[in-house]
């Protein structure tokens, strides 16, 4: 199981790096999907098959496809690839890169000095997830539900546009 974890982790890291360095948006998204699948494998190995399945269904299956959907509509061509090339010059990324590297070093240091509790391979199934969602994290679930409701109402408001241009036969009827 250890070796599977490390392979999946390696795939996740490499594909995430590819996401950052790709110039074509759709290629980058495809690598992101691979990365999400790798993370799902990690979840599975860690004994949470439910979360692993949800990771694939929700992230890889629904959210990423919506993003690809949006990018397909944008019709990004050669111009955007050129712009991405400009942004990938070291001058642009060296500053944030150094700062992020410092943070990463700190993270590794704290993780090393902080010995984690003994990891027991308890399988967390759907029942446990549901129990904790509706007891410990009930407030979070409610808040998320409210946010989603707001999203739905907003989408309805934007999408629901009164028809302004009528066919000429209908127009006449309206005038009468």
């Amino acid at each position: 199981m250890q070796i599977i974890f490390y392979i999946a982790a390696l795939v996740a890291i490499v594909s995430t790096a590819m996401v950052i360095t790709r110039k074509n948006a759709v290629h980058a998204l495809l690598y992101l999907i691979v990365s999400l699948l790798a993370v799902s494998v990690i979840f599975f190995v860690m004994g949470t098959p439910f979360v692993a399945a949800l990771e694939v269904i929700v992230y890889a299956g629904a959210i990423m496809i919506l993003i690809i959907f949006a990018i397909m509509m944008l019709n990004l061509g050669q111009a955007s690839e050129k712009r991405e090339k400009e942004w990938l010059k070291p001058r642009t990324w060296i500053g944030p890169g150094i700062l992020a590297a410092i943070l990463l070093a700190e993270l590794i240091y704290t993780l090393n000095s902080f010995s984690p509790p003994a990891h027991e391979q308890a399988i967390i199934d759907a029942k446990d997830v549901g129990m904790s969602l509706f007891s410990t994290y009930a407030l979070g679930v409610e808040l998320a539900a409210m946010m989603l409701m707001a999203g739905i109402v907003g989408a309805y408001h934007i999408g629901h546009e009164k028809q302004k241009e009528y066919h000429r036969y209908l127009q006449k009827e309206e005038e009468l």
Partner: peptide, 8 residues
């Protein structure tokens, strides 16, 4: 998680 696997 058979059904979830199918859905995924």
């Amino acid at each position: 998680v058979g059904i979830l696997f199918f859905l995924a």
